Structure formats: structure tokens, C-alpha cells
Computed example of a mutant assay.
Amino acid sequence: MQSSIITVRPAPGQKSRALLQFGTMVVPAAVGRTGRTTRKREGDGATPIGSMTLLSGFRRGERPLRVQTQLPIRLIREDMLWCDQADDPNYNRLVKAPFRPSHEEMKRKDGLYDVCLVMDWNVTSRSRNRGSAIFFHLIRPGYQPTEGCIAIHPRDMRRILPYLRKGTVVRVL
């Protein structure tokens, strides 16, 4: 599977569903509960339309999902959080507990972040309220909507991970 572009296009019938294509592989995916948008705002529940490069990733060490990839991957620790409070200087950054401002826990009980890839949405060049924690991660049962991320089945993530590297482009149409 030779490709450096992952394309995410809307699936017919439901704004929070998508089709993810990587090379010749096409798999179902979930996107934001409010669909996709060109005007991403913090908390709007939408997946940003545009091209985002993969920067790095995280994985749970104690879960049995084997991760083989060229992406830089860090093991998730209990104290890892991601700041989503737009007026904080750490907005859209990995932070360490204890941390009082609004944040997401990286070590989630629901397994969504057992493999969690960081896309460059508002990361290398940040703007307040433009959206935070836009990740490429694992799906909820039934392909339930995300809060703005892109999510796929663990089986599909295992299939594409070996081909991903820093700089792979995720293009949301």
C-alpha cells in the first residue's frame, strides 16, 4: 500500500460518518457529531475540512494492540493530559497532571486512545478557539460520532499503521 495521503470523505446518509481511503483500502470511519466544517471552533463537535499532517502518536502499553509504525509513538502514562482550554497558554498541548484548566485524559478507560495519532490541526501554529485535540484514533462501538476527531476500527488502524510516518497527510473533504 504505497500512499502518503489518507482521504476522508463524507459517507452518504449521516453527517458523522465518513469513508477513509488509504491507497486501495477504503474503510468506514466516524467524524464529528456535527459533521465537517471549514470554520472549526473549540467545542463545535465538527471535524475540520482541510489537509493535516501526522505529527506523532500515543499508545496504551498494557493493551494488546500491537503497534508497528514509522511514526514517533509514546506510551501513554496516567499523568498525560491534553489541554483544551482556549485561554490557557498550554492550549492544544500535552500537559501533565495535576492540571486545573480544562483538559482531556489521554489514558481513557473507553479505549479510544489505545492508538491515538496527533494530526497537525492548530498544533504547530496555534490560534485560540480554533479547535484542540483533533486526533486520529479508534472507534466507539457502532461508529458513534467523535467530538471532531477521525476514528476507525482497531483492525483497520492495525492495517494502515505500518505505512504511516511523520508527514503523512490526512485530507478531510
Rank of each mutant, 00 (worst) to 15 (best):
R41Q: 15
E42V: 03
D44N: 13
G45A: 12
G45Y: 13
I49T: 11
G50N: 07
G50F: 09
S51E: 13
L54Y: 02
L55Y: 00
S56W: 12
S56I: 00
S56K: 15
S56M: 15
S56R: 15
F58Q: 06
F58H: 14
F58L: 15
R59N: 10
R60Q: 15
G61F: 09
G61C: 10
R63Y: 14
P64Y: 06
Q68I: 14
Q70F: 12
L71M: 13
R74V: 14
M80W: 14
L81T: 07
L81E: 11
W82R: 12
A86G: 07
A86F: 08
D87A: 08
P89S: 03
N92Y: 00
L94Q: 03
V95K: 04
V95D: 04
A97Y: 09
A97Q: 04
P98C: 06
R100W: 00
P101F: 10
P101Q: 07
P101N: 08
S102Q: 06
H103F: 08
E104Q: 01
E104N: 04
E105S: 13
E105M: 10
M106D: 05
K107W: 14
K109M: 11
L112R: 11
Y113R: 02
Y113I: 02
D114C: 00
D114W: 01
C116K: 06
L117F: 09
L117C: 09
L117P: 09
V118R: 01
D120M: 02
D120Q: 03
N122L: 02
N122C: 06
N122F: 00
R128D: 08
R128W: 04
R130I: 05
S132L: 01
A133D: 05
F136M: 13
H137A: 02
L138P: 04
R140H: 09
R140K: 13
P141W: 05
P141E: 12
P141R: 11
P141K: 12
Q144K: 12
G148L: 05
C149V: 00
I150D: 02
I150A: 05
I150K: 05
A151T: 00
I152S: 07
I152Q: 02
I152P: 01
H153E: 15
P154K: 00
P154T: 10
P154Q: 03
R155P: 00
R159V: 03
R159I: 03
I160L: 10
L161K: 07
L164C: 13
